[in-house]
């Protein structure tokens, strides 16, 4: 008998339940069931929760990213600029982890960043094409074209975009600026660019390199032999708000 997708998801849910020790989980994707296709290269990333959740208080990924990308260090948390940061599991997955009884797991933190969606709402709504999707799945920003209307921030269902409410250069000390990466100006939106400049020369994203726990795995989602696909194989993964069909490129391995 052929296994339907629904049954597979049910089985996945049960496995997820065992793994997380909570109530039902759904929207589970398994490595062998990936719907791939389209371009030969689709950059994506997996967050291995078993490894990441153990590293409480670790922010090496964010420190490496923010340092190299000249992300301003703004004390005003409500107007902070963030490319990658840690948030509570229960808030990242409100429909699944957010509903389980295990408060300890709900409050554990893991990384969030731009999901580099295939059907990115931010790209769809941008009135100037300042944010756009590349063939290889990276959602990019052209900060010189951005008019600062912040429509993309309203459209992003993940809260992954930051606006420069302040002049960001005021929050960067002269000697800490990385001269190889541009600083931004006030009044434009910015976000994680998946280290496109590194990926284009065969490198890996900085957060992946910085992670000592080996919790972040980058790779080509459309290449069955990639590190990423191997990591996804045989494990179940969650994606944020998968029901919105944005097709996020960040997988959270259970």
């Amino acid at each position: 008998m052929k296994t339907t997708r629904r049954e597979l998801l049910k089985r996945g849910a049960k496995t997820g339940l065992l793994l997380l020790g909570g109530t039902a989980l759904y929207e589970v994707v398994s490595g062998s069931e990936l719907l791939t296709g389209g371009a030969p290269l689709r950059h994506a990333m997996a967050v291995d929760l078993r490894r990441c959740l153990q590293e409480e208080g670790c922010d090496r990924c964010a420190a490496a990213c923010h340092g190299a990308h000249n992300v301003p260090r703004i004390a005003d948390e409500l107007r902070a600029v963030k490319w990658i940061w840690k948030d509570e599991m229960g808030r990242i997955f409100p429909e699944t982890v957010g509903r389980i009884a295990n408060a300890e797991l709900r409050e554990k933190k893991t990384v969030v960043l731009c999901n580099h969606c295939t059907n990115a709402p931010c790209v769809r709504v941008c009135p100037t094409g300042a944010t756009f999707s590349r063939e290889d799945g990276i959602v990019m920003m052209d900060q010189h074209r951005c008019i600062g209307c912040r429509y993309c921030m309203a459209a992003c269902p993940y809260g992954s975009r930051s606006f420069n409410w302040y002049d960001p250069r005021r929050f960067l000390s002269e000697d800490a600026i990385n001269p190889d990466y541009p600083t931004r100006t006030r009044g434009v939106v910015e976000k994680c660019d998946f280290c496109a400049e590194r990926l284009d020369t065969g490198g890996r994203p900085l957060c992946v390199e910085a992670c000592r726990a080996g919790a972040l795995i980058h790779g080509n989602l459309n290449d069955p032999g990639s590190d990423l696909r191997r990591a996804l194989q045989g494990r179940f993964a969650l994606r944020r708000r998968a029901e919105l069909d944005t097709d996020p490129g960040i997988y959270y391995l259970l």
Partner: peptide, 11 residues
């Protein structure tokens, strides 16, 4: 409301 009002013609 624009962060970069002088770029409004980009639209």
């Amino acid at each position: 409301d624009l962060g970069q009002p002088f770029r409004v013609l980009h639209v």
